Simulated scan of single mutants.
Amino acid sequence: MTETFYEVMRRQGITRRSFIKFCSLTAASLGLGPSYVGRIANAMETKPRTPVIWLHGLECTCCSESFIRSAHPLAKDVVLSMLSLDYDDTLMAAAGHQAEAIIAEIKAKYKGNYILAVEGNPPLNEDGMFCIHGGRPFVEVLKETAADAKAVIAWGACASWGCVQAAKPNPTRATPIDKVISGKPIVKVPGCPPIAEVMTAVVTYMLTFDRIPELDRQGRPKMFYGQRIHDKCYRRPHFDAGQFVEAWDDEAARKGYCLYKMGCKGPTTYNACSTTRWNDGVSFPIQSGHGCIGCSEDGFWDKGSFYDRLTGINQFGIEANADKVGATAAGVVGAAVAAHAAVSALKRGRLEQSDGDNK
């Protein structure tokens, strides 16, 4: 029988105190309250590790690179303890027929109980011959493996949306996996690549609660894709104040002003970059001086230059001029009062005229 998460941790010398601390950190990363710590601990103590098959289609492996650099929790803890990562042709030692036999074994032994993680997408043109997996079109392997899976995770923009492989004119007909797989719950974790801690947290949630997280209308976990990067960006006050970088490395750039005019897509991009951040929580692209390119949004690769400025985004301008803001507000109130008075006078005139006619 497959070991539980807690059994593996104990075997590795992890104390009970450290285990509870891990559960607390997990609850915090998922945005859950202290009351969930006990539920997470119970799940980790009683549930067997979930077998995972991780497939690769058209992609650059950046999702795997991001995943193995996770800091909270460490990827080794996820891979070696929480998951039973039985198949990943990038990380596994086996190759060839030996590796392919593992997929068949997992599908037969854990039918309906394993998770399928997909990095990359299937090309459909030329009968799928632009991506071959074990001597067969990847799209065939993908459909067969998904058929007996409990749930499917689409890692990154490639699996979720198609990404640059699907850029116009898309000669290979690179296709998002939800257009190929049907009848299975699919969790999209887009980004190019996704944040490592977001990837591990999504897996943790699914293993702990035995269900997929609440998704937005595009199939992304709301806990990480429920707010725009713009809403939590540390440069947001500069946006509201009308303080923008006008050219790379100008004085405004050195002062850390808003990158909106340099093409930043933060106001239209939903992701946790500005809160969870990258590189062990140290920074994210905007903090590194480059605007967001919107890599977690569908079609970001075909929406013009990454440096084209967004249009129609209104700013508040709280520091433009306090007196001017106050005068404007007073003017608006005055206009409203005048309009109300005019309407009231018009109504009175109509009523007086009506009374005169009745007499």
Rank of each mutant, 00 (worst) to 15 (best):
G96S: 05
K222R: 12
Y36A: 15
E297S: 13
A322Q: 09
R10D: 10
C192I: 04
Q287P: 00
H56S: 10
L351K: 14
V202P: 00
H72F: 08
S344W: 11
R277T: 08
F306D: 03
R254I: 00
Q353D: 14
V332K: 06
D231C: 07
A339T: 10
A329N: 07
P171D: 05
E126P: 01
H56Y: 13
V282E: 09
G289F: 00
A94H: 05
T61K: 13
L58R: 05
F5N: 04
D323K: 15
N279Y: 09
G128V: 08
G33K: 01
A247Y: 08
N271A: 15
N125G: 09
M199K: 03
I68R: 13
V118L: 10
Q287H: 08
R173V: 11
D308K: 09
V52Y: 11
Q227D: 12
M82K: 12
F306W: 08
M9H: 08
Y257A: 09
S288C: 13
G281P: 10
A342C: 10
T145A: 02
V52M: 14
A341S: 12
F138P: 02
A253F: 02
M262C: 02
H290I: 14
K303F: 00
R11T: 14
P237I: 06
T2N: 12
S296Y: 05
V8S: 08
D249S: 11
R136P: 05
K168I: 14
K261S: 01
Y257M: 06
V52R: 14
K111D: 13
N279I: 12
I102Y: 01
W161T: 10
S354V: 11
H340I: 11
S354W: 11
F22L: 15
H133G: 01
M129S: 14
G294H: 09
V343K: 04
Q243E: 09
C233H: 10
M223W: 07
T2G: 03
I103F: 03
E140I: 05
C258P: 11
L310D: 06
L85E: 15
P34T: 08
M129D: 10
F244L: 04
G128N: 10
Y257V: 00
P171Y: 05
F19S: 09
D302C: 00
P267L: 01
V337Q: 02
A339K: 02
A27L: 03
L207Q: 13
Q227P: 00
R10G: 04
S81Q: 10
R17Q: 15
A27H: 08
R277W: 02
E105F: 02
A157K: 14
K184S: 11
E352V: 07
A167P: 06
K303W: 02
S283Y: 08
G112W: 11
G31L: 03
S24D: 01
T200L: 00
D86S: 12
P190W: 06
A341E: 15
C63P: 00
I286D: 11
Y234E: 15
A338M: 12
K222F: 04
G312P: 06
V343L: 13
F300M: 01
M206W: 02
S81L: 07
D298F: 03
A201G: 03
E197K: 03
G156Y: 01
K111R: 12
A43S: 15
I103V: 15
A151M: 10
T172S: 05
S64G: 02
